[in-house]
Amino acid sequence: MTVKLTVNGEERQVEVKDGTRRLLDVIREDLGLTGAKEGCGEGECGACSVLLNGQLVNSCLVPIAQADGSRVLTPEGLAQTPEGQVLAEAFTECHGAQCGFCTPGMMMASAALLYRNSQPNEQEIREGLSGNICRCTGYDMIIDAVLMAAQKGRGLWG
């Protein structure tokens, strides 16, 4: 089947033999966008997070047939936006990234949170990132980064 996607603002078509192929595999292998990572492969760790029609999803749990006709924002696309740049600066300044494997997913979840709640408190940030696992930072520095991104990006998140 032919699947049409708008990926990071660009229209793309992919041929897939099987509609149950994961969105994660299509964006990594067919589209060469390797920002989203496979961690657990079962929706527990959030490393594969992308926005599907503006909503945060684990791309390892989405069969590609369900994404047909949708908008997808990957970490590469987020990085090009002013919001993504604010997040990247805040993660850098607060030491929110160490090994970096969780970071793209963390930033996608952070962006999804800030889009629905532009001035979250610490508790709301912890809840917003609760589906993303980090084994390096102990989370506190990531929380600081999101607080900073909320403050520095005031007005950006709509």
Partner: peptide, 24 residues
């Protein structure tokens, strides 16, 4: 798919494996 994709998952790097046809 949050239950079904997990229940039918294969190895990392591979898509799920379903014996039956799916109706989305």
């Amino acid at each position: 798919g949050t239950d079904l994709m997990v229940r039918h998952r294969a190895k990392n790097g591979m898509g799920p494996s379903f014996q039956k046809s799916l109706l989305f």
